[in-house]
């Protein structure tokens, strides 16, 4: 009966499933520093973050649905939709301060509405999450195309200038990141996220334990929609324009990041911090491949292989730790 595992490292991993990814991250930072000493400077770190901030937020969004054992393949579509909506809004009403602020509000509302639709079809209509959210993503992308048939409308100057501005010597993205981390920090301590994880651990036992499973899953999708919208803001700041196809490539990367961060697609165990680390791992693998002087045509392959291997190692360690 007494089979409590005394192995401290395994126990740590069980408590914090993102530890393997943290170790991978540290190794990657060191490797990056070894091949390109400049890469450990503040400047290049800020550069890394600003390049990957949008994907980090998208991974955060994905994490909240994975927590409750769902998956959202429409996040890319949502990003595109929010991106073109706010750019078109700013373009139409001129780029004044109030218009920019209103556009942000609009973006959030759109994101949450998309989340509501996904939550409805997956949790209330009980359709398979993978195919249902794929269908909604086609719908969202159609809507994005309707709003802006071709890419290239510029975002309001105010919008992207703010995004690249330094305040008190600190870049805006750092403020944005800090604000978001603070938000996530509080969310992590919220009743809602606990409930979300408990639901993901097993629908039946959560139901018997008196939790409202359907409502909780819908709320997970709402939160996912919210963070997808915020991710779209960062992407818009980064690209300074509207593009109805901008999010297409990001959906599957967000899923990979969640898994890289130690999240289990079967639910109950995923951490937002882990998913953000997952994105940084993807980013650092990409830069490392560049720094070690891989011929350009080989870079994508080495990146893909490294990500696959990182995924395998992470999952393997977590499975061992849970056993």
């Amino acid at each position: 009966m007494h089979k409590n595992n005394k192995n401290i490292s395994l126990q740590l991993i069980r408590n914090f499933p993102f530890i393997p990814s943290l170790i991978i991250l540290i190794v990657l930072i060191l490797l990056n520093g070894f091949y390109e000493p400049n890469s450990i400077s503040i400047g290049s770190l800020v550069g890394l973050i600003s390049t990957y901030l949008a994907l980090m937020l998208l991974a955060v969004a994905q994490t909240y649905v994975v927590m409750s054992a769902d998956i959202d393949l429409s996040v890319g579509g949502v990003i595109s939709l929010v991106n073109v909506s706010i750019v078109a809004f700013m373009d139409h009403f001129g780029g004044g301060v109030y218009v920019v602020l209103l556009s942000l509000l609009l973006g959030i509302i759109i994101g949450i509405l998309c989340g509501l639709i996904n939550g409805f079809v997956v949790a209330i209509l009980r359709l398979q999450a993978i195919v249902a959210t794929f269908a909604t993503s086609i719908f969202f992308m159609g809507l994005a195309l309707y709003i802006m048939p071709v890419a290239g409308t510029p975002a309001s100057d105010l919008f992207w200038l703010t995004y690249f501005e330094n305040y008190f010597g600190i870049p805006f993205v750092i403020y944005a990141l800090s604000f978001i981390i603070l938000l996530i920090f509080f969310l992590n301590k919220s009743r809602f996220v606990k409930t979300l994880l408990a639901v993901g651990d097993g629908y039946l036992s959560a139901f018997q334990g008196g939790l409202d499973v359907t409502k909780t899953r819908v709320k997970g999708f709402l939160l996912c929609g919210f963070f997808s919208a915020v991710s779209a803001f960062c992407l818009t700041g980064e690209t300074a324009s509207g593009d109805p196809l901008v999010g297409t490539k990001m959906t599957l990367l967000s899923v990979a990041a969640v898994v890289l961060g130690g999240g289990a697609l079967s639910g109950g165990s995923a951490s937002v911090i882990g998913s953000m680390i997952g994105v940084l791992i993807i980013g650092l693998i990409n830069s490392l491949v560049f720094f070690i002087g891989t011929p350009s045509e080989w870079q994508n392959l080495i990146q893909g292989l490294s990500i696959l291997i990182a995924l395998m190692i992470g999952i393997y360690i977590n499975i061992k730790a849970q056993a």
Binding site: I71, I130, A256, L265, E297, N300, Q303, G304, L308
Partner: peptide, 27 residues
């Protein structure tokens, strides 16, 4: 055998293949 969920395994493989495509086509 490594017990990676199929979705994750084949997603990772997709990334590898996309990279491989660049190599095979280049030049």
């Amino acid at each position: 055998f490594i017990k990676i969920p199929p979705l994750v395994m084949t997603l990772g493989m997709l990334g590898v293949l996309q990279g491989l495509l660049v190599v095979v086509r280049n030049g």
